[in-house]
């Protein structure tokens, strides 16, 4: 999947000199492994400090904690693949959860499926707005999505005020805390989403177009790809995934508040980049983003096990994200020269 774009073309679409090819090939085979290795070493390190880490309940707990983050990060991955960015995912998570919570608790006689659908639709609508602003009005993606972040936040406030919605229908809550074949339901949903994403990116025309638009927009246009359609769809997908992550989190917590999604923005950006998705587009994979997410969640879980106050977590996330992006940028520059 990655070899098509990562070996030969650089971030801005130029062709790198031939002599760098072997180096590039080694890099592209080693890097995913090195990330898995980093994950393994981190786990080993935490296990030595606190053996409780390896208990199955803790491992399942980690995976369940990672679920919303992985889903948001997969949405972000596909946006990054086109060379864009979606800074609104955290606020979209909140907004979609608030919409679903509103229909679940404030409107009587509505089945929970309809409320969940309304939440997903809200996420897709936010994504559609982002996509239209970026593809049609040609606003820079950071500006458009950062504006959307605040609109989503304002709308959530307007719909809910300051008192959280809580106490949802059992059918809805099952998707947060139910089990199937011994594994929590959210994990199954996450696996299904990941499989769908792999299928979408690897086996469909749309997937090829996403990579094409991201690695060389001019060439994509020259070969007849309507990049605005691809872009709009990509942002809708990102909004939809953010909404899904928000709903799973809401179902698990059995309550929605104003801060439910906001902490997910930094991890959602950092996970794909740590997993090898390039900020300049055209390069990245679903598996990498999942490993990247796991790295961050294991780090946070380790901090919990080692009794480091959760107040410092934002600091750790900021540093981890900066290091990840720096590694990406400097490796890319080394490949270019």
């Amino acid at each position: 999947m990655r070899t098509g774009s990562s070996d030969r073309t650089t971030g801005d679409g130029r062709t790198a000199p031939d002599r760098t090819r072997p180096k590039g090939k080694i890099r592209s085979t080693l890097l995913p492994l090195s990330r898995a290795l980093a994950l393994f070493l981190l786990c080993l390190f935490i296990t030595i400090l606190n053996p409780n880490f390896l208990k199955p309940t803790n491992l399942i707990n980690i995976l369940r904690q990672a679920t919303p983050q992985i889903i948001v990060a997969l949405g972000m991955t596909i946006v990054l693949l086109t060379g864009g960015i979606d800074l609104s995912v955290g606020s979209t998570m909140t907004f979609a959860s608030v919409v679903a919570g509103y229909f679940l608790t404030q409107v009587s006689g509505l089945p929970w499926q309809a409320a969940a659908a309304a939440g997903l639709a809200a996420g897709a609508a936010v994504g559609l707005m982002n996509g239209l602003m970026i593809a049609k009005i040609k606003l820079p993606a950071p500006i458009a999505t950062y504006g959307m972040l605040w609109i989503g936040r304002g709308l959530s406030f307007a719909l809910m005020g300051t008192t959280p919605f809580y106490g949802f229908a059992d059918g809805f809550r099952k998707y947060g805390r139910g089990y199937w074949l011994g594994l929590p339901l959210p994990i199954w949903i996450m696996l299904a989403v990941a499989a769908l994403m792999i299928f979408l990116l690897t086996w469909t025309v749309f997937g090829r177009r996403v990579y094409a638009v991201g690695s060389n927009a001019d060439a994509a246009r020259a070969s007849g790809i309507r990049s605005d359609k691809v872009l709009i769809l990509v942002y809708v997908l990102s909004g939809l995934m953010a909404a899904l992550a928000g709903l799973l989190l809401t179902a698990r917590m059995n309550a929605v508040d104003q801060d439910i999604g906001e902490p997910y923005l930094l991890p959602a950006l950092a996970s794909p980049v740590m997993g090898g998705t390039s900020m300049s587009g055209g390069e990245g994979s679903v598996g990498g983003s999942i490993i990247g997410s796991l790295l961050m969640v294991v780090l946070l879980n380790g901090m919990n096990l080692l009794n480091i106050s959760s107040l410092w977590q934002q600091l750790a996330l900021g540093i981890v994200m900066l290091l990840a992006v720096w590694l990406d940028v400097s490796l890319k520059r080394r490949a270019e020269t």
Partner: peptide
């Protein structure tokens, strides 16, 4: 470090808020 400025400053935002929260336990 050649990090795009909005990512770099988002990272610094996390660092500065993290220290602000952590230094007096919130």
């Amino acid at each position: 470090m050649r990090i795009p400025s909005f990512i770099a400053t988002l990272g610094t935002q996390g660092i500065a808020f993290g220290i602000s929260l952590g230094m007096n336990k919130g």
